[in-house]
Simulated scan of single mutants.
Amino acid sequence: MKRLLPLLCAAVLLSGCSKEEAAPAPVRPVLSIRVVAQSEESLGRFAGNIQARYETNLGFRVPGRIANRTVDVGAEVGPGDLLATLDPTDQQNQLRAAQGDLAKVEAQWINAQANARRQQELFDRGVGAQAQLDIAQTDLKTTGAALDQAKAAVRQAQDQLNYSQLHSDHGGVVTAWNAEAGQVVTAGQQVVTLARPEIKEAVIDLPATLVDQLPTDVEFKVAAQLDPSISTTATVREIEPQAQSATRTRRARLTLKDTPEAFRLGTAISVTLSSAIEPRTELPLSALQEVDGQTRIWVIDPQSQTVAPRAIKVLSRDGDSALIGQGVKPGERVVSAGVNSLKPGQKVKIDEDRAQ
């Protein structure tokens, strides 16, 4: 018995020492993300370009063959500048014919005037007949009407000759040519498009199904494709009522809130549609843990560097991410991987500082 007592004491001492010297739980390195709330819902991104709100399609008032074009696409023109000309041969021939007819009628007018004066003088002296005077005066009136008609024909022929030149109605930028030199065009056929650059707008094509579902508070963010830092917002000015049969899209014209200098006519743009929503958070599916039918996440305490589980409300899941409606606040840090091996109060080491 005396021999067993020291052995028992030694065992008790060894047991106490092993409890005091037990190694603490290891610090677990984890991947984490910082929560960022989303207050807007993206409805899509579409390509478009900057166009002038007001464009004019110009054409010749007379038919003919285009002789030359004096400006190219992109040229700035002022009011009355010459844009193109037709071969004026036909119009010149019509003018010469009208001028010849006018000279002929003018000669007849002179003769009618002289004859009317003679008949009036003879009648006044009593040697002329009333019938002859009436005929002379009738001829004078008829010739006078023919003279007015001939003069109008000359003016019309002169106008036709002038119409063989196409001038700009207002200042602007040439955005398109629809006819080339040597091409025969009809009267009124669209030849050139002239845009007024002072008022610009964004033009995009939207799917017809999306147009019908656009919320009233939808916001368009317009950015230059080459430099996305150049951007502004826009609102809908008009949407074509009928979809294009080939693409099933409807053209939308957007009024720009501001017009950056870099937004020149024809500039390629990227338009993002978004709508205001209740604040929500997007987390990767790897950050979620299912326990007893409840979804939770592990939140990191920045002071103690420990983790604690927290129940959340999942709004939807899509691919590798989930939308969280309740249970997490902006700025909090959440474990993004390895959640199934964590324990409440466990210390962790943050290896990466990523923001969602």
Rank of each mutant, 00 (worst) to 15 (best):
S229I: 05
S32D: 06
V35L: 06
T186V: 10
R61Y: 00
H170I: 05
A67N: 09
L285I: 14
R354Q: 14
P302K: 03
Q137C: 04
T272R: 14
L95A: 01
L102F: 08
R310D: 07
A195K: 04
D318W: 08
D212I: 07
L7M: 11
P24G: 03
A287S: 15
N93D: 15
L7N: 03
I300M: 10
D159L: 11
Q213I: 09
Q51M: 08
A276Q: 15
T142Q: 14
Q51N: 10
G325M: 05
T247D: 13
Q356G: 11
V173D: 05
R280G: 08
A308N: 03
S321E: 13
R45A: 15
A146T: 07
L288R: 05
V222W: 10
T267G: 00
K19N: 07
L166T: 10
G172R: 02
A176E: 11
A52C: 06
K257S: 14
P88H: 01
Q137I: 09
P228I: 04
G338W: 07
H167G: 02
K329Y: 07
A145F: 10
Q92G: 11
V335Q: 05
P207T: 08
S245N: 14
P88G: 02
T216F: 10
G188R: 01
I66V: 13
A195Y: 05
L82C: 02
G182K: 02
G327V: 06
Q303N: 13
R125I: 11
W109T: 06
G345T: 07
P344I: 01
N162G: 15
T186S: 15
Q289C: 07
R317M: 11
T175Y: 01
T295S: 13
A181N: 05
A11F: 12
Q242L: 12
D292T: 00
E332I: 05
V62C: 01
A37M: 08
D258Q: 15
N68M: 06
E332N: 04
A243T: 04
G266T: 03
T255W: 09
A103F: 02
T193W: 00
R45K: 14
N68H: 07
K349W: 12
R317H: 09
A187E: 01
Y163T: 02
Q189I: 02
Q51D: 13
G319P: 13
S164G: 15
L283G: 09
K141R: 14
D212P: 01
E76N: 08
L265Y: 05
S341M: 06
I66Y: 06
Q303A: 14
I350G: 12
R333P: 01
S304D: 13
P24W: 01
L194R: 00
S286Y: 06
D318T: 14
K200Q: 08
V71K: 06
L254G: 11
C17K: 01
Q149V: 04
K151Q: 13
R155T: 11
E219G: 14
L7W: 08
D318Y: 11
L7A: 12
S304R: 12
G319I: 13
V27S: 03
Q51V: 11
Q303P: 02
V77F: 05
Q289H: 08
E278S: 15
W298Q: 06
A268D: 14
R251F: 07
